[in-house]
Amino acid sequence: MHSFDYRAPKDLEETLEEAAHWGEKGRLLAGGTDLILFMERGRLRPEVVIEVPRTEPFTTLEETNGMIRIGARVTMGQLEHSPLIREKLPVLSQAAGEVGSVQIRNLATIGGNIVTASPAGDTLPALLVLDAQLMLQKKGSLRTVPIDQFFLGPGQTVREPDEVLTEVRVPVKGDRFVTQFYKLAVRSYMDIAIVDVAIGVYTNGDGAVEDARIALGSVAPTPIRAREAEERLKGQVPTETLIDEVALLAQKASSPITDQRGSAEYRWLMVYRLTKRLLTNALLNSSASGHR
């Protein structure tokens, strides 16, 4: 690995200071489970590595005013086990629980997963389904970016070099919002997704779908929402035929490639089948629960 400088700011203010000072030459470090590998392979060569401090707001994990606040340094392990997340955002807890291994989840953070912007980042489809808001802060300014507007391409985002992701905010949608997540990979753990599918649906008292989210990972240059498919569901009372149609629309939204993890053909087929499976579980089977 190339040589680099290391900074350990104490708090948010110092972090913003360092980020502003180093700009493109600097790179933030959280768990390091992506960054260090990228540096080892020469994909990133920052002159300065700035460690995100283990202080608020980076470590925040709480609910305030119907909003769940998740600090950028909250780990996958915390998301997996936190009673708050398990109860209020089970889809995120499940997705985080399927990242890497126990050791990786002890280090890997939600902020890192988001900023790395891999099409296969497992928490990203879950965050898309949850309408997560990203708080991007730099010296003297703060902006909120909805997660569906954050990703531009593999490893590419709207974040500017001196912007620090401080926290992720997720509105609590209540009990009527049913979610499902499926990570398709060869191994049970410690594997990169061939396809990720996350769905979220609200149904009203009459059983009609009020609103829907369908998000896909590993089948496009970024994690995506299948908006046409979502629209098709809205206002409808779900039936097998409808779900089939929606799953086909989700398939249409994807543009998978063939790589070492799977062919475009397989991914294509899986988007359809898994979307259908998750929607069926959520809307037609009474005991809707996440499963793999």
């Binding site: 291994s101 060869v186 191994r187 049970s188 753990y189 410690m190 594997d191 990169i192 790589d259 070492q260």
Partner: peptide, 15 residues
């Protein structure tokens, strides 16, 4: 195209 242990897979204890 898979010269690493993420893509050349061997089972973990969970498998």
């Amino acid at each position: 195209i898979n010269p690493n242990l993420a893509d050349y897979r061997i089972p973990t204890a969970f498998d």
